[in-house]
Every structure is written in structure tokens, then in C-alpha cells.
């Protein structure tokens, strides 16, 4: 029975691998729902913020917040890159990094320098090996990311923009479209693109306490934070979805492999039995 024992061991080991991938798949499947829930809960805040910004901007046409003012010359841009902390999620991070690298090269060709802020372990590790200017990093946000964890990295970028070091800030993350599709996406964070949807008729104004610039300033910072926070949530949902799909195909592959191995095992066993019988028959005939 040469070889059958090895095949059996191999089958066992593939079965164990399948157990792991199945478990990971199911964990991700349940986490997607929670991540989507969080995404939904954070939307009203951003929507209401946008509304307030629209009102204040329309009511105070003479005061333009620095975050709204577009700059003509672009010498240096900032990128906030949102990645996952862990791997085993298919080509999610690879696609994201490919996208941002293409953009960085484009900028370098035009003589524009690039500053990077990395969110997530994978981005930190990736940009560590690259010849880019990494100015901020946060990792291990966990399953329940909080805005508080993001304040630091966002402030680095906002300060850079306010001081005039950065002329544009972009946000790169994986957009959760559905469980099967996630798309790497770049949004312009600063200056805030003017939205078309603001109501045009305006014949009233707020009472401001203490004054319009102070209030607007706080609203702007919170708004940018909520945008980055939402990107982190989108990316989290994308991570779980991508991992679920990757683990599902890994489990399927394992099942197929087990089937093939089982076939080989059966054949080997049958061959051994046949050989034994023919040996016995041969022996009996010789006697």
C-alpha cells in the first residue's frame, strides 16, 4: 500500500485548511453586515454638515473659507490612503496601491511633489519601502473605527493645506459597491469641490454665536473628518466583502483538491488490492 498513507495525510491537511478558510469566510460574512450598518449610521451627519456648509457659504458670500478656495498653481499635493490592517482579502490592497502609484507617477512627471498619510497597516508597510514623503500614519483601527483615532492624521493634512504647503488633498479608498464589487476610488478632499445641489434661493441668514468664520471653521474641519471616517468605513466593509469572496474561492478550491486527491487515493488502494489478489492467485497456481 505504498503512497496511500501520504495521500491520506495530504487530504487531512487540505481538510484542515478548508476548515480555516470556511471559518474566515463566515466571520467576514457576519462582519460585512455590521460594517454596512455603521456606514449607514454615519451618513446623516455628513449630509447635515453639507447642508450647513451650503447655507453658511451662500449667506456669507464675502467670506470664503480657505478650504473652499481653489488654488491655481499646484506644487505639492497630499494623499490620504485608506488601506486594511490585515491581508487575505484578495486583490483589494493591490488594486488600491496600483491606482495611487499611477497617480503619484503622473504628479512626479509634472514636477508636483507628493505627501502621503497612511491609514491601516498595509499602507504603512507599503509606503515604508517606497521613495515617498510619509507625513502621518495610523494603524490598527480595529473593527469599530472611531473618529477620534483619525483626528491626528487628518490634522496633519489640514495644517499642511492651511499653511500653504499642500495645494490639494486627495482621499484614496476602496468604495463598497456591493459584496462582489469594490472599487478603488480617489476623491478630492481639499479644496472642497463646490456641489451643484445646494439650494439657490436664499433670503435668510443665521444668527452666529460667536461669529460666522469661527463656526464655519469648526464645521469644515468636522466635515472633512466625517468624509475620511466614511472612507474608512467603506474600506472596512470592502475588506470584509473581499475577504469573504477570497475565502469562499479558497474553500471551493480546497474542496476540489480534496476530490481529486480522494480519487487518486481510491485508485492507489484499488491497485494495491488488485495486485495482492493477482499475487495470491499467481502463488496458488504455482503450487
Amino acid at each position: 500500500m505504498a503512497g496511500t498513507k501520504e495521500i491520506r495525510t495530504k487530504i487531512k491537511s487540505v481538510q484542515n485548511t478548508r476548515k480555516v478558510t470556511r471559518a474566515l469566510e463566515m466571520v467576514s460574512a457576519s462582519k460585512i453586515r455590521r460594517a454596512q450598518e455603521k456606514m449607514k449610521q454615519s451618513r446623516p451627519y455628513a449630509r447635515l454638515m453639507r447642508q450647513v456648509i451650503g447655507h453658511v457659504a451662500k449667506a456669507n458670500a464675502d467670506y470664503v473659507h480657505p478650504f473652499m478656495a481653489a488654488r491655481d498653481t499646484v506644487k505639492r499635493v497630499g494623499y490620504v490612503v485608506v488601506s486594511t490592517d490585515r491581508g487575505l482579502c484578495g486583490g483589494l490592497n493591490t488594486n488600491l496601491f496600483r491606482r495611487i502609484l499611477a497617480e503619484i507617477r503622473e504628479h512626479q512627471k509634472n514636477g508636483v511633489e507628493v505627501d502621503i498619510v497612511a491609514i491601516g497597516q498595509k499602507a504603512s508597510v507599503f509606503f515604508r519601502r517606497l521613495k515617498v514623503n510619509l507625513v502621518g500614519s495610523v494603524t490598527h483601527m480595529g473593527e469599530k473605527p472611531e473618529v477620534a483615532q483619525l483626528i491626528g492624521v487628518i490634522k496633519v493634512m489640514l495644517d499642511g493645506f492651511t499653511e500653504g504647503k499642500l495645494d490639494r488633498v486627495f482621499l484614496v479608498y476602496n468604495d463598497f459597491i456591493n459584496t462582489m464589487t469594490q472599487k478603488a476610488r480617489t476623491d478630492q478632499l481639499l479644496p472642497l469641490p463646490e456641489s451643484e445641489s445646494l439650494e439657490t434661493s436664499h433670503d435668510w441668514d443665521y444668527l452666529y454665536e460667536p461669529d460666522a468664520p469661527t463656526v464655519l471653521d469648526q464645521v469644515m474641519v468636522r466635515y472633512v473628518e466625517s468624509l475620511v471616517y466614511q472612507a474608512v468605513l467603506e474600506n472596512l466593509a470592502s475588506e470584509h466583502a473581499a475577504r469573504m469572496v477570497a475565502m469562499k474561492s479558497a474553500s471551493d478550491n480546497a474542496t476540489k483538491l480534496i476530490g481529486t486527491l480522494q480519487l487518486v487515493y481510491n485508485k492507489a488502494r484499488q491497485a494495491a488490492i488488485t495486485q495482492e489478489i493477482s499475487e495470491i492467485v499467481g502463488g496458488a497456481a504455482a503450487v
Binding site: V117, G136, S137, V138, G152, K155
Partner: peptide
Amino acid sequence: DEAAAGKAKEDAEKI
């Protein structure tokens, strides 16, 4: 907020 920004920068420098 400034302390948080400092920490983010420090993390990047460590990397």
C-alpha cells in the same frame, strides 16, 4: 488635536 497630529507624525517617522 495637536497632540494627536504629533502622534501621527511620530508614527510616520518611526515607519
